[in-house]
Design a protein around this nucleic acid. Structure first.
Lengths: 147, 147
DNA sequence: ATGAACTCTGTACCAGAGTACGGGGTCAAA
DNA sequence: TTTGACCCCGTACTCTGGTACAGAGTTCAT
């Protein structure tokens, strides 16, 4: 692939977003103001495309734009020391582990559901999704806690 | 623990939600209208509490209420056959696997970041989060695809 | 050299998912 | 038996994350 720049529409298609969403992220400071052609058209570098891709993925995982901004600026501020960063990154890691656990739980429930479907015909009985999700782990980390 | 019922406030605290959110889920049909005391107070069974818990978790994972409703009603409609359910559940499983992959990627990036912090002092250089997230996997499943 | 397809700015609007009242009953512990 | 915390309902408001124009300029494939 080329290392060339892309127009906003190309980036949008590539990243599975609308053009306006990308401009929106720019306004919100999630991506840098890109350089412009003389016509005013935005030109996106591969790096920025990667950043946008990242944003979409993280969004799908339930991170808010605010959280995503935090993830993306973990290194940017030259004020913050390395150990600051480390603490924050470890916070995020805990969040992510909690999400993984939840996903694994839901996944197991769904698998049990499909397994049940193997050997019964017609509507299923009790819901194995709920069965698999009693009260269980509190799940409240440093960067999730509020109120 | 008791198998007794709980008031809405207790449920809210237990599940880490606001009282209004729970009433909102009721209006939206994500949870059944609970039985009431003569005073009108709602009484929640353990089963419903589990359901509410599930909703909160799934939300944290980036599922919309609409998707959560789909997850929760995978078995409910006596019209749908078992193989229907199976297909839908497998769709969801694919979504979940995609999410897990993305999470793992972000996690690896964060780990690399903290590792980098071990051996450098002061602000870090290039962002390992972005490094770890080039263009990579498309991630677009049956129940995610739109437009 | 022209027209379809794209991009620009700006403003307005939208849906999803709650939050926040206000005005009133209810519960339970002191 | 009262008082502080809790619950009821309804309506209105908020915040997030975009979408949808409108009117105008650009690109480039034919």
């Amino acid at each position: 692939m080329s290392t060339a720049t892309m127009t906003i529409g190309q980036v949008a298609k590539r990243c599975g977003l609308g053009v306006e969403a990308i401009r929106f992220y720019e306004r919100e400071g999630l991506i840098p103001d890109p350089p412009r052609r003389t016509s005013g058209y935005r030109e996106y570098s591969q790096e920025t495309v990667a950043r946008i891709h990242f944003i979409r993925r993280a969004k799908e995982l339930g991170f808010s734009l605010k959280e995503i901004r935090e993830l993306l600026t973990l290194r940017v501020d030259p004020e913050t020391t390395c150990s600051d960063i480390k603490v924050r990154a470890q916070d995020k890691l805990r969040d992510i582990d909690a999400k993984m656990r939840s996903l694994r739980q839901i996944k197991r429930a769904l698998q049990r559901l499909t397994a049940k479907c193997e050997d019964t015909i017609g509507p299923t009985g009790e819901c194995p999704i709920l069965e698999a999700l009693g009260t269980s782990t509190p799940l409240q980390s440093a960067s999730t806690a509020r109120r």
